[in-house]
Design a protein around this nucleic acid. Structure first.
Lengths: 141, 141
DNA sequence: ATGATACTTGACTATTTTAGTCAGGTTTAT
DNA sequence: ATAAACCTGACTAAAATAGTCAAGTATCAT
């Protein structure tokens, strides 16, 4: 299973974006400064977010990024999916004759892992970017 | 967050053990053959499980391992903990001045990650080795 | 028009983690 | 005594992670 810095950065950056993009496009430079994330790394991340149509880019001076959907409609699943954070547990080896062949003799862990994966995905499907922004604002009062 | 092959192997091996240890100690060789896990790797894993008193070793010929507790009392949390599979999400960098300082200005992801961690740990705390063995036996009918 | 700002892309890399292997033990039942 | 099985620590190849670096292109403000 993967859930690393890249996913965390994507979430942080998008919450930042959601808080400021109603006025102007937000430049990665600003996000970089506010969130302490390397600009080059942000570019990699936003390239992926753009391809998945989570954000839109505005080129040129005063350019930057804006959300491409309403914050309420952007679920965490979408974000993690976009930056290749697969919420997947390690799969059983296909070559392994013993244990898990995927049919009757599914390995013990297999079912468990499936179950866990579902749990986590449910959690991420419930949470939208809007939830996080709200939560963040409350904490700042 | 970590949830890799080592954790999966530990679970598979212990389920195997739980099914057979009522008669004799189970040798790692047998587990290795049945589950298709390298013997050397199993030894590493069982060394850790023994230190955490999840299994007991029986040395010498006809030796092997037995559970040190009832299957019902061994929770998945204990297993993952023993083999160093930390159910922890990536932490925020302490050096980072921006973002997360851990006090008032906790970074957005921080709360979310905490919440997720709790979710997963709850899931693992509910499941015991006994649950898995039962589940496994049902599937085999 | 032109410079500055900011997006865009792709290649590159150091570090860490993972998933083992290997070698050389010690213990004990038979 | 000897073979089975545990025990320990060091080692390593491959993959993943978390970036950096370089060389662009587009557009706005003036």
């Amino acid at each position: 299973m993967k859930l690393t810095s890249k996913g965390r950065y994507a979430v942080m950056a998008l919450v930042d974006l959601a808080r400021f993009d109603s006025i102007n496009p937000v430049s990665l430079r600003d996000i970089s400064l506010r969130q302490g994330i390397s600009l080059d790394y942000l570019e990699q991340i936003f390239s992926k977010l753009r391809k998945k149509e989570i954000v839109q880019s505005v080129r040129g001076t005063q350019g930057g990024y804006v959300l491409n959907k309403k914050a309420r409609e952007i679920k965490l699943t979408n974000i993690f999916d976009a930056v290749d954070e697969k919420v997947k547990t390690v799969q059983c080896k296909k070559e392994s004759k013993k244990g898990c062949t995927g049919k009757l003799t599914k390995c013990v862990a297999h079912n468990l892992w499936d179950e866990l994966e579902k749990h986590i995905n449910d959690f991420f499907n419930e949470k939208s970017l809007e939830d996080l922004v709200k939560n963040n604002n409350e904490k700042r009062i």
